[in-house]
Write a protein that binds this DNA or RNA. Structure first.
Lengths: 294, 294
DNA sequence: CGATCGTTTGACGGTGCTCAATCACCGTGG
DNA sequence: CCACGGTGATTGAGCACCGTCAAACGATCG
């Protein structure tokens, strides 16, 4: 299984050329693969017991533009992104590629297939990417043997559901530049979670993919970029984006429906919350409920 | 990692008026509550072992317009809808209620909260509704004791992810009547899954909620209804909808982008697939990938 | 029966989709 | 070195569609 570069860049491959790459089971120096996996998924690596040395963990390499998950393929593996990034998309009946979300390090891929046996969404690498593979057949056994893995999986699943809600929230805005602003803030926040800069962003995806995610034409994405740039919120050069003022950008991203006056002097006071997290609105009331014995 | 158990975080409503209603632990005549739960979630009730008699399962009653899950509330229970239906929504910063999805019998609610400890989405009953409650605290124990429940939960989670993709697919269409057509087909299919008529539908939600889900103004939903009705696809009377020709409606729902000619005589041959399920497209190729040893 | 809410329909204006042209970038090969 | 084609990003012009505002109508419930 030495390097097989023959198939690289060959656009007409009839069958799949992936190969799982063995991950040497954790030498004494570096952390074991299971620990690494748990850490990626946001769990606590210190909970990994010593008997995890023989944990059969492999990861796959996927080149840019290669597809890790094929739409309609039978489900054989669950993946956890180890490095790189991907786009998850659904090919609609007319051939239009609807991007569902972008996946980064630590995210779970392929779980949707448990339900119907086949992959409902595809995953295509936006850059050279590696992903840990968990064989679905062995999953019950693995979860039984390693409770910490089980816990991390539940966490990752929960996070996936939250991500889906994020996507919907981005598309909820009416104005296209507001959608783009939300997308940029979303991306920025996720870069921050990974310890990278929240202000200088390198977009790994093209305008067309962003447009698909946001539900607009790709020309509109271009126009929205220049609109936001001319407004002084950011500087954009091809795929490199620099966000100048996150707070003002958030203000822009807030406007849903009834496009409120650009002036923004309306309530320029204490609005310091970090978008997600702080200050849950206290439920506006108007909820009437009862209880009845069964 | 430390969870915030500081009781009810809600400053306005001091306490909630819900009450769990005891579910008598399964008499000999009717199936046990666990069997019922597994069946609802799409699992195999026959796998329920005999020792499940003492399974501590309760369900809650929620009146129409009452909220089962409060946005921002601390996560205490997972719910599985037993009867009725709900809307899941996120209240955005400006007060706009973004509907994420509609939940019906068998669907899982509240799992998103595992990730952040608080509910990111609210769930409001569209009609009088009952839902089984699983205390999150006891969840690990329950999953360990009843593997069949664990399996069903994984299934339900997978299904939730698929549902999220469905929602995005609906919003992907450009034309508003296409969005509405997709929504109606989606609803129709889910009614079919529950053994109800796929042609006569009683919508439990208002136009405003549909509009929010589809990302359009509620007046536009009204207009799209009349458009589809005038085209002969359906008959609508308030919330009662009758779909006349599902196949032609599917054809209408197919058009994404470049609104293709209404003529539809283009490819009117074998297009009999049931939208979801049959005939997975065989992956169009153009994927290049390689493998490298780690 | 009146009040409130939900639904429908109309008119108008603006936003964004479509169709195009242009430019920048890149790897290839003359 | 520069033509060459291909891809991706930007910008422009035109116009249909949909969001907004408004009013009328209908349903439901007290």
């Amino acid at each position: 299984m030495s390097q097989d570069f023959s198939s690289y860049n060959n656009p007409i491959i009839s069958h799949d050329a992936w190969e799982p790459s063995h991950c040497a089971g954790g030498s004494a120096a570096e952390p074991g693969p299971l620990q690494e996996l748990i850490r990626l998924m946001g769990g606590d690596p210190s909970e990994v017991t010593a008997d995890a040395e023989d944990f059969p963990l492999r990861y796959w390499r996927v080149r840019q533009n290669a597809t890790l998950l094929h739409e309609g393929a039978t489900a054989q593996h669950l993946f956890v992104v180890r490095s790189g990034s991907l786009k998850c998309l659904k090919t609609l009946e007319d051939g239009y590629e609807q991007v569902m979300t972008f996946a980064q390090t630590g995210e779970l891929l392929g779980f949707e297939a448990l339900h119907c046996g086949r992959q409902p969404v595809a995953a295509v690498a936006l850059e050279d990417t590696t992903a840990y593979a968990l064989p679905i057949r062995e999953l019950p056994e693995l979860r039984r043997r390693y409770p910490v893995l089980d816990k991390a999986l539940q966490m990752a699943l929960s996070r996936q559901l939250v991500r889906a809600a994020d996507t919907a929230e981005m598309m909820a805005a009416v104005a296209s530049d507001v959608r783009l602003a939300r997308f940029l803030l979303w991306t920025s926040a996720r870069m921050g979670e990974m310890g990278q800069s929240t202000r200088r962003i390198l977009l790994r995806m093209g305008r067309r993919d962003i447009a698909s995610l946001l539900g607009v034409a790709h020309e509109t994405v271009s126009r929205s970029f220049t609109t936001l740039a001319e407004a002084g919120y950011l500087k954009v050069e091809n795929r490199e984006v620099e966000l100048f003022d996150l707070d003002r950008l958030r203000q822009r991203a807030r406007s849903t429906r009834w496009l409120e006056e650009e002036s923004a002097t309306r309530r320029a006071q204490g609005e310091r919350q970090s978008k997600v997290g702080a200050s849950w609105r206290p439920v506006v009331a108007s909820n009437r409920q009862v209880s009845v014995a069964a």
